[in-house]
Write a protein that binds this DNA or RNA. Sequence first.
DNA 1: CAAGTGTTTTGAACATGTTCAAGAAATTGG
DNA 2: CCAATTTCTTGAACATGTTCAAAACACTTG
Lengths: 239, 239
Amino acid sequence: MPADDAPADDAAAAGEVELGPKASRTRSAIIDAALRLFREHGFEATTMRAIATEAGVSVGNAYYYFASKEHLIQAFYDRTQADHARSAQRVLDRETDLEARMIGVVEAWVEVMEPYRAFAGTFFKNAAEPTSPLSPFSPESTPARETSIDLWRQVVQGSDARIPKVLRAELPELLWLYFMGVVLYWVHDPTPGAARTRLLAGRTVPMVVRTIGLARLPVLRSTLADLLALIQDLKGISA
Amino acid sequence: MPADDAPADDAAAAGEVELGPKASRTRSAIIDAALRLFREHGFEATTMRAIATEAGVSVGNAYYYFASKEHLIQAFYDRTQADHARSAQRVLDRETDLEARMIGVVEAWVEVMEPYRAFAGTFFKNAAEPTSPLSPFSPESTPARETSIDLWRQVVQGSDARIPKVLRAELPELLWLYFMGVVLYWVHDPTPGAARTRLLAGRTVPMVVRTIGLARLPVLRSTLADLLALIQDLKGISA
DNA sequence: CAAGTGTTTTGAACATGTTCAAGAAATTGG
DNA sequence: CCAATTTCTTGAACATGTTCAAAACACTTG
């Protein structure tokens, strides 16, 4: 599998790439062609032959840069994640209210993804396979996941909300998990403009924020403690 | 697509089938062959040619009964869902404690699925695609979903727990959703015997039950009301 | 510059899911 | 029992993701 020793497919994830100008340009051409075709005809309907032709290279060459058709999705992820981070930053720079920050980040994501809505489901189909390196829970996507969780860490840290001490450490990860839930909902949301997803986020975010505040109350304390202990224990059982 | 007018692939779901004995036997042979091969070599590694050969029919014939390789998964679902229902019933017949009933139903499911753990992920990959008829949220799988939700209705109704009135109507569906979450976790659980998943269920079920009890408290009342209202609203927005 | 070494590119060949036109087998109607 | 009709079965053909050996290219070294 030549592509494995070839320029790393996910190199763009970290932001830095060290490739010759030629290789780099071919790679970009393939990604551009692929994303354009994906957007126009969907993932399944786009053939590797079509991508190669559109990019002006041979099929084999495309496989030199991307181990499989699925691996092109990684490139898509990297691109949209960067777009999202940029877009979210604009909100985070000006808002200090936790609720507004959370909603802002979710809305930014929905907006960035809008052009790809129609076929993003196909993407997530592949991402849903546990053994797939594209799964958001896979070891291979650890860097991307960390980047994503960091965004939620920022959401929390930059806010003026008073977070109960017990929650501090785990909250960003928990919010990321909440966000994954929103994404899952979005994938199945057929409404134009993702209306349902926006409604879901707009209404659940306040609940989440309120619940965080409630966490210090005695009634919820013990349940929360149970939950946090469980998370620790789950992490403890090795694979 | 001849198979579309052919004996319905999901006929077994409802339980009743009206097919000639010959057709029925061929169909069963294909399913048996497929599931055996899936269990032994996994989903991807099993070719339609192998399934056909193992079942003693031609490839084309397999496609007469099943529109695609994915559609064989539906048969798998139907089978395991029936097994689960049977197994869960034994618990429901003897337990009245809500917590015990819930844990029993989850444990029964984990046990039924254990032989398929290794490759079940591949199944769910396909189920995760929103447009796939195999998605648990798709219109096509409405009957199967209803059956599954009914099981949780039974869990609630047969218990001696005092359920807050506001929750009564939605609780079974919410528990089913909780169960889907457990399933999602299970899919990604690499521990032998699904140890992590069992731990998750054993610890979260008591939290869920406790939270149900807490729902009548004033602090949670409003949040719960918001949540229920949201569910109604989400159902309201048409696709 | 020539030889050597590593990188990039090519297109034919392969594997497998799927289709389809044709035929065999069963069923029905007279 | 024959003809017509429906159901079932077949295997070759097709589409597309993927591989691979060979060639083209780029770059270093003597």
